[in-house]
Simulated assay, not measured.
Amino acid sequence: MIGKKANLTESEIRHIARSFSHYPYPSASFYGFRDRQMIERYIELTTKIMKSYCEIFSLDDKAYMMVSDESSVTPFLQYIRLLWESGKILGIRRMYEQLEEGSRIGFSQEVVLRKRKVPFIHIELLAVEEEYWGHKLMSELIAFAKSMARERKCLLILETDELHKMKKYVHLGFQLKKKRRIKEDVVIYDLFYDPESEKGSKEDQYE
């Protein structure tokens, strides 16, 4: 059963981080990370930051989803914390490279929709604990998020930098909006679901 959570425990955050570091199709964004421990520390940090402005949902404490919308704002002090702690985990040079790469590849869907004042729900995190992989828990969370979008009559958006995940999301009803290429083998896939039309009738709102 999917329920809303007020917070995440330290144990839950560690499980989320471990699911990312052990995933058999590793995120392309983790190139340059030394080992799984570095990935886990980074995901623990970003999860702690996101829970300060996202809604958190849990599926029987086996899978987790964090979502934001057009009204969500990262608290200023949390943003400073993200930069500071990222620098300690990744090193100043790697953190600077990440920021530079992000600015070079163009605006995300979230930024474009905010500028156009188009309402949306943004899936910022999806994580299934390792022992429950293959149990279709991600599909249940996606279906729940789509029902939220239908209720609000707004776009549902997400991004991934992993081709295998992108294909899964397309299979679950998302459409590929665009690709943002960081490097030859590192691509951000922007996807959306429009509850009013599987063909994406709202696409022209953020071309």
Rank of each mutant, 00 (worst) to 15 (best):
K136A: 14
W133D: 02
A6P: 06
H164T: 11
K167S: 07
G91C: 03
K202F: 07
L125R: 06
Y96R: 11
S71L: 10
A127C: 05
Y64C: 00
K199A: 08
L156D: 00
E159W: 00
K165M: 10
V170K: 09
E130M: 10
K48T: 12
K177C: 06
C54Q: 04
S108I: 09
L90Q: 00
L59Q: 04
I39K: 05
L158T: 01
S197L: 07
H22V: 05
E85H: 03
K51D: 05
V128T: 08
I92H: 10
G3T: 14
E55I: 03
R34G: 14
R94Q: 10
D161S: 12
K136W: 06
M66D: 00
P26W: 04
W133L: 05
E140I: 05
M66F: 06
T46D: 09
M38H: 08
R81D: 05
G32Q: 11
S68L: 05
T160Y: 00
V187Q: 01
S19D: 03
K48I: 04
G91F: 04
E130C: 10
Y193D: 02
G106K: 13
D204L: 08
V170L: 11
K168F: 12
G134Q: 13
P24H: 06
E140F: 03
E97T: 08
R14P: 01
I16H: 03
C154K: 02
L141D: 00
Y206S: 02
E44L: 13
Y53E: 10
S19I: 02
P24N: 11
I182L: 14
G173H: 03
S201H: 07
L155K: 02
G200Q: 12
E129G: 05
L126P: 00
S108C: 10
D190E: 15
E196Y: 07
K117I: 07
W133K: 03
M138P: 00
K168T: 07
Y25W: 11
E55D: 14
M50D: 10
M50S: 13
S147D: 14
K5W: 10
E124T: 02
Y53P: 08
R104V: 06
D190L: 00
E203N: 09
E130N: 13
E55M: 08
K5M: 15
V187N: 02
S147R: 14
R104Y: 08
R94D: 06
D61Y: 08
V118M: 09
I16P: 01
R18N: 15
S201G: 12
Q98T: 09
L99I: 15
I188Y: 00
F20I: 04
S72C: 06
K115C: 08
E196D: 15
E100A: 15
V67E: 00
V111W: 11
Y23Q: 03
V73Q: 15
F76Q: 13
G87P: 00
V73Y: 04
F120W: 04
D35I: 09
C54L: 08
K168L: 13
S58M: 06
G134V: 05
I39M: 13
K115T: 07
K153A: 07
I49E: 03
L172N: 03
K4R: 15
Y169L: 02
F174C: 01
K179Y: 11
I105L: 13
T9W: 14
E184T: 07
W133V: 09
E55V: 04
I182Y: 10
L77F: 13
V112M: 11
M50C: 13
Y132C: 08
K4F: 11
E100H: 13
P119I: 03
I92Y: 07
E162F: 01
R104I: 05
M66Y: 01
K48L: 14
